[in-house]
Design a protein around this nucleic acid. Structure first.
Lengths: 108, 108
DNA sequence: CAAACACTATATAAATATATATATTGTTTT
DNA sequence: AAAACAATATATATATTTATATAGTGTTTG
């Protein structure tokens, strides 16, 4: 039955689109992109991120909380510092593509 | 001056993050992703998109309007039909990456 | 030119996200 | 144990997005 196969395809596609949409919503904010861009170079603690991004502390914590909640990052505590790293390979892939398109031409 | 160089880097990064954020915001919705996914295979008119996506007409028009406004797609009229195609290469790149991560394992 | 068709626009209520200020929780140092 | 430090949590006003209903525009057909 072509009709029902087609239906299934749409449902499958929609499920995928929902999942991909969740990922993009987690990334679709300049602050969070900036943070993930820095983290794509390796693990950093919150003070590092604050200095490298120029994001003020309350906003920083709020946006890091979003990234934690949406499973984009994982953390590890060492003494007073909390270190962040990217935990989503899909997020990392998107960050790389964005880097190509939006940062590749920048002077170093 | 290391300090001012650093400042410049942050400003440049932020400008890039703003631009990339605009792109992701345009994509960060399941309906729009589904539409762009279909369009990544080639040009389609609105009736095609409605059938292929299962999105109801008013929502479809609203989301197509968003994609037009944000310059993700371009259109061309042929008689009564309006044909859509992806006009943003950055969007296309992101769609491809998402396909790899979220659709690659699907049964055909 | 009127009806049908394909599509776009407007309106509005509800849900989410953002900006910003303030308070709180752990950890180390003295 | 108190002070200082690094980070998280809460609160709230504003803005943006989404869902949904309804109206309108441009094109072809009879």
């Amino acid at each position: 039955m072509i009709q029902s196969e087609n239906k299934l395809d749409i449902q499958q596609l929609r499920a995928n689109a929902d999942a991909a949409g969740e990922l993009l919503k987690a990334l679709a904010n300049p602050d969070r992109l900036l943070l993930l861009c820095q983290l794509s170079q390796g693990e950093l603690n919150v003070s590092d991120l604050e200095a490298l991004s120029g994001i003020q502390q309350p906003t920083l914590s709020q946006q890091l909380a979003v990234l934690r909640r949406k499973k984009m990052v994982e953390t590890r505590r060492m003494g007073k510092q909390v270190y962040y790293r990217i935990s989503s390979s899909a997020a990392l892939s998107v960050i790389h593509v964005l880097y190509q398109h939006f940062c590749a031409g920048d002077a170093k």
